[in-house]
Design a binder for these strands. Structure first.
Lengths: 151, 151
DNA sequence: GTCAGTGCAAATGGTTTGCACCTCA
DNA sequence: TGAGGTGCAAACCATTTGCACTGAC
């Protein structure tokens, strides 16, 4: 666990309180599951983990909680593929972009200050405000390159 | 029309032939609609234009043709939002990235050689092959900034 | 006690597919 | 003439929603 659960719980509780929302057993259980590892995951995968551990959290609650955590800026949703959103932690994590393997879907994070800077320049040149960006580089990861060669 | 229809028709016909596929009336009509402007569009929008002009092309054929044109590398599909793929011409057009307005969904194209170069470097550093990338910068376009101020 | 949260099942909406009929090469 | 193409409606699948019940504060 990269961030202490207490800290995560505290943060989410405070964000909820601001909007007059409540901390519930289900939300607590989901938080624990989500921040237990730093993996990228889909709503469906999270729900499967709930079922596997018999947490008694419904699919609807999983989806609703992911939306809340994204609004709270504790998670970020990515459109790597068109079929399902992929979530990842952003609470207490530096911003980064992604290398995505087109074969096995493995995701590797990277940061590049120079690219960040040029993006701001581009937005300014076009008189757009800079809210956010998504940069994904697609290619074969080292493992899949090896597998492909040995075919 | 930015590319002559004859050229587009010729290209698609050749690609189809390679896979033992046929040029049909429906595919011809869709090509004409698609390459008549350089706008970004969704499958649904294209289908609506078909209906408006009474072209007699079904939704299934629209979807199937968009897939074929993407495979033929005449169109590219983008995941700007999670709800619908947005298509654009890439045949006879330079590669570029996108500024997307978070308010009105307007898309502005840009190219930045420096960013392209850094991306290749990042892929190499992580021993990924470089197949493609998607870079989208999200913010408010000039028009929407103006509207927001005057509220 | 009240209002938000939950589970369930049904609805949604973009996209895909099975199938019988049609048509290009 | 036969394989590929088409239209239609049904299926899919991630996600959302309506509703009656439950529970946090």
């Amino acid at each position: 666990m990269e961030v202490s659960f207490d800290k995560v719980l505290d943060k989410f509780t405070k964000v909820l309180k601001k909007s007059n929302l409540r901390m519930t057993e289900q939300r607590k259980k989901l938080l624990e599951l989500i921040f237990d590892s730093h993996d990228h995951f889909t709503a469906e995968e999270l729900y499967d983990r709930c079922k596997a551990r018999d947490l008694g959290v419904s699919k609807a609650t999983v989806y609703r909680s992911l939306t809340l955590l994204t609004e709270a800026e504790m998670l970020e949703a990515h459109n790597f593929a068109q079929n399902a959103l992929v979530y990842e932690h952003i609470y207490e994590h530096e911003h980064h972009d992604h290398l995505v393997c087109t074969e096995c879907s493995k995701v590797v994070e990277f940061t590049c200050e120079a690219i960040e800077k040029y993006q701001r320049d581009v937005a300014k040149e076009n008189r757009f405000t800079f809210e956010s960006h998504s940069l994904n580089i697609f290619g074969l990861c080292p493992d899949c390159q090896r597998k492909q060669k040995s075919k």
